[in-house]
Nucleic acid binder design. Structure first.
Lengths: 243, 243
DNA sequence: TAGTGGTCTAGACCACAAA
DNA sequence: TTGTGGTCTAGACCACTAA
């Protein structure tokens, strides 16, 4: 049983949320399984019921579990929506596809925001941005080249972190208390430039899936502008639409 | 000021939620306006803070408001979500982009379902499908080539309709009582074949946005398999992701 | 009847933003 | 320094479900 740290900066309810979510993700608890009752978790982790409920609330809101009064809390059957329209890190994405993810950091630097980037991130042109260029690998083969831009003021010192082995989302949450909860994307098909073609080990002008994504925090503030160039021959983007 | 009834069966937090939501909907509070603080509402309605927060939680989860620590709770700007993740017809889509839509029907016929198509549409191979090939125009210029497949049994006689000037969705709804409410898509970047390149008036191997879409009725029955080949230089796909 | 989640109270201390 | 939301506690009573 994982433990909850009372000294950590991470809130107790969030630690519990992660513990529970992990058990769902790793299959310890299967769809329709009964979760421990709120009272059990109160005893087990020495938390108040309100804190336990706060963790459960997150799981319910995200569709991982559902509650039945008088019966208990149960794991949801996976809906397709969760798998399709969620924000996923490259790491998660590749693992879901059964591929071994890898990352090579090609460059990292502080740059002034261009007009376009400033508009996307809702800052003034010239504002300091933390820029990272990463080559993404799947099963050792190049999959994509990503250009990431963060408003440096929001995450001072982030360029010193270990990008290759840590999820950006996780670093933002744990070290800067920034939760990325929502993103807007533009997707196009473009021909590969000479430079990208070489990095991706494909012919120039091969089709790339080009994604421009702005991710927002839970406070509606744009946090990251991400440009992804995916090999058309290796990557399919899944999504779903509703009426 | 609306009042909260302590005798009602409706929970206090829900009554408060409705009061607050109404003021947002009727425009009393505009986007970016500051809502009353939690403490104010506690005093005003004689509720505990937890109850007020529960009402706020609902508004936050539904995207009506967002919180800023140290500042207050604010009305959200209307999200683009509704415009992004909805099913839209080619017609609507082009009009939203300010382009004049047009359609040329290239072929229409009844064909037996291949293995792949049968699986997508959940029928047995060989089942009769209504197949339509359309060239889509925007401002008179080729935009995409669409291959559409419908289970003929669901919409007998549909091939006799006027495809060029009527929305398929509308025909299905009005004449066959079929509502398309949900769709799953796969999006890839592919090189244009000789044939597609000629139809689209582009160079062979130019990048195309290739979309495979299965649309489902309100009864969860797959209705249409649609393959869209969009010119990469003319079309951008918008979408949004949530945590 | 016992156990579950649903609602609600009355506090407390904290981190953060603005004046 | 003041007021805001963020987190947490230790209770309480209720409605519902299943045994």
């Amino acid at each position: 049983m994982e433990l909850i740290s009372r000294n950590s900066k991470i809130p107790l309810y969030y630690q519990l949320y992660e513990i529970l979510l992990n058990r769902i993700k790793d299959g310890t608890w299967q769809p329709d399984d009964l979760l421990p009752s709120e009272a059990e978790l109160v005893d087990q982790y020495d938390l108040s019921r309100a804190t336990v409920r706060q963790a459960f609330d997150m799981l319910v809101n995200q569709g991982w579990v559902f509650r039945r009064r008088g019966q208990g809390t149960f794991v949801s059957r996976p809906t397709i929506e969760q798998n399709l329209s969620r924000i996923v890190s490259f790491w998660e994405d590749m693992q879901q596809r059964g591929l071994e993810p890898g990352t090579k950091v090609m460059a990292r630097e502080i740059i002034p925001a261009s007009e376009d980037l400033a508009e996307e991130l809702q800052v003034t042109p010239g504002e300091e941005l933390a820029s990272i260029v990463r080559l993404r690998l799947a099963d050792g083969e190049p999959m994509s080249v990503e250009y990431s831009y963060l408003v440096h003021q929001n995450c001072l010192g982030i360029l010193d972190q270990d990008y290759a082995n840590n999820s950006l989302r996780q670093m933002l949450r744990d070290q800067f208390n920034i939760n990325l909860v929502y993103a807007r994307q533009r997707i196009r098909a473009v021909p590969a430039s000479e430079q990208l073609a070489e990095l991706l080990d494909i012919e120039p002008n091969s089709p790339l899936l080009h994604i421009e994504r702005v991710s927002y925090s839970d406070q509606d503030i744009p946090i990251e502008y991400l440009e992804i160039n995916l090999r058309g021959d290796r990557y399919t983007f899944y999504t779903e639409l509703r009426d």
